[in-house]
Nucleic acid binder design. Structure first.
Lengths: 245, 245
DNA sequence: TAGATCATGTTGTTATAACAACCGATCGGC
DNA sequence: GCCGATCGGTTGTTATAACAACATGATCTA
């Protein structure tokens, strides 16, 4: 990422590298003037770097006081969630996977963003079709940093869950995950893999799983047959307007 | 918001006001130089305004070409029960409703199940198209028990929110809701209402809202344009040893 | 002593300026 | 006619500069 990246990106990355090392949640960052001196750039540049960190929820700024490392307590979502494939497993449906491909590639932008990897980083991609009672229900792309990916790649991906492998065998406890869900339709590849007609409904889920320290370790794009999955949840009514936080 | 708000916020708001009116998805925005002339501000100010629109997914910029209106798309966090207008307000976007139909019908089985009604019960059905920044985003069926439905039917459904009507005017505080979300595709009716091609992706949500005592009072079937909405959530790792994924 | 005021340090807003990177079309040479 | 170079238009990056708004603690005043 060295010298040809924008200065603000270099400053930004340099600050990120300190998080959890010399900078901890609640700590105050160096002031803008200090960063100007330290990096030898202009104020507009350090401000852009800090603003990007704010946008990434890593830093909060308080006018008149300074900028502070955010507390990563951002895990609200008091919602208990049921459903999903747990349902399938709970129904006792045997779930197997057909591994289509395991390879090492340069991380695409969305993968880099999810796993917080620098430009040019490589990842292991695992492409599988998941089956329930013998019929395909989802087409999954799993992306792992290569250090983990090389380990997992040697395991029995047809019969073991990646989550289980990570947790039990590779010392990577998973603490939480973020989900992004969309409705989509099947292109030719998906249709073929899932044995549905092209244009059929697809429930698309991007899931990023985190290990301790909120470090992302597993990014998956799951394409479920639209008729094979329902996502259910229960949410409380937003509290009285007039105060939030 | 008048004169004491930052200039970039005023420019930003002024641009948002044009979305769906004189600016439609795919259109090119005025260039930065044109905006400078038009608003009489500096480049740093118009750039900040445009960047904020980019951050809100309302605009995309292409270096060397210009800035363009994005097709409306929203990321909705699944943290609390909120109505469409509340969601759009949270994004700072103008929203409207087009009421297609208000009628009393015999409750179909799924409605009876959701609202806990006996066989033969009647309900009020309200059919609406929801628009954000001037473009259809969702096609909604709302089912209310007739006692509530008759009250709500006399209100101004184009401009008032059903949740607000229920809570403020008709003494029915909402406490929580259950969601069931699926991927589907657009039939002819949906395609026409949402101005998409038949077969396009649809994010379908069944939502049952409850009032005190967990009494169901409002059952909705929401059909979002699949390309217009992404739902996100964040979940702690389920601690169920033995099965996951 | 309690309260108001001020000084200082901090982030927030805005202007001016210049150059870089990129896109698309036009123009030129072969 | 085809292909490369050039040029005008656009967004991206960065520097310098000044003032505003806010927080905090010190100082001044009643």
């Amino acid at each position: 990422m060295g010298t040809n990246a924008p200065l603000y990106a270099q400053v930004e990355q340099s600050l990120v590298a300190r998080l959890g090392v010399s900078l901890h949640p609640g700590d105050r960052l160096p002031t803008e003037d200090e960063l100007i001196d330290e990096f030898g750039v202009s104020r507009i540049t350090v401000r852009r770097a800090v603003q990007n960190l704010v946008a990434r929820n890593l830093v909060v700024t308080r006018r008149g006081q300074g900028s502070f490392v955010a507390v990563p307590s951002f895990t609200q979502s008091l919602t208990a969630l049921t459903g999903f494939v747990e349902d399938m497993d709970a129904h006792g449906l045997p779930s197997r996977a057909r591994v289509l491909r395991v390879e090492e590639i340069a991380a695409p932008p969305d993968v880099r963003a999810a796993l917080d990897l620098p430009l040019g980083a490589r990842v292991t991609r695992i492409q599988r079709v998941r089956l329930a009672v013998g019929h395909p229900v989802s087409f999954d792309d799993t992306y792992l940093p290569t250090d983990l990916g090389r380990l997992v790649a040697q395991d029995d991906l047809e019969n073991e869950q990646i989550f289980t492998l990570l947790e039990s065998r590779h010392g990577t406890p998973l603490t939480e995950a973020s989900y992004a869900m969309r409705a989509s339709t099947a292109d030719a590849v998906l249709a073929d893999a899932l044995e549905v007609a092209e244009g059929s409904a697809i429930f698309r889920i991007e899931r990023t799983s985190y290990t301790s320290g909120l470090r992302p370790v597993d990014y998956e794009v799951l394409h479920y047959r639209g008729d094979a999955i329902t996502f259910t949840t229960r949410l409380p009514r937003a509290r009285t307007p007039g105060q939030e936080q």
